[in-house]
């Protein structure tokens, strides 16, 4: 049986963050041509925890980097590392894959 994909908005973000599961992440990542490895999952799981704790997505790229740095240190909390994992606008790409709402201040 095929599982129904949760409802998404016109930019591909989930309408309901709680409808997310890891299969959804794999599916959304594939649309961006991404195959998720350990490093991606580390950030995705961080974002899921962040959302549970704070009920917001990091509002911008800079704040996404700050939040990752706060949790995991300089090595992962830097824009080059995150850009390599999540091309484009890293906060948007990562939040989309992690099932979080669209970051409010990302153009």
């Amino acid at each position: 049986m095929t599982r129904a994909t949760p409802e998404r908005n016109n930019e591909g973000f989930l309408e309901d963050a709680w409808a997310w599961d890891p299969d959804v992440a794999t599916e959304i990542a594939a649309e961006d041509g991404l195959e998720l490895d350990r490093n991606h999952w580390e950030i995705i799981n961080f974002l899921r925890d962040f959302y549970k704790e704070h009920e917001i997505s990091p509002p911008s790229n800079r704040l996404f980097v700050k939040a990752v740095k706060d949790a995991m240190g300089e090595e992962k909390g830097n824009s080059i590392y995150l850009m390599q994992l999540f091309p484009g606008t890293p906060a948007k790409t990562a939040c989309r894959i992690a099932g979080l709402p669209r970051p409010t201040n990302c153009l």
Binding site: F50, E53, H54, E55, I56, P58, L63, A67, D70
Partner: peptide
């Protein structure tokens, strides 16, 4: 919960 993110940001 939103406000608790303030120190992180």
């Amino acid at each position: 919960k939103n406000l608790a993110a303030a120190p992180i940001f």
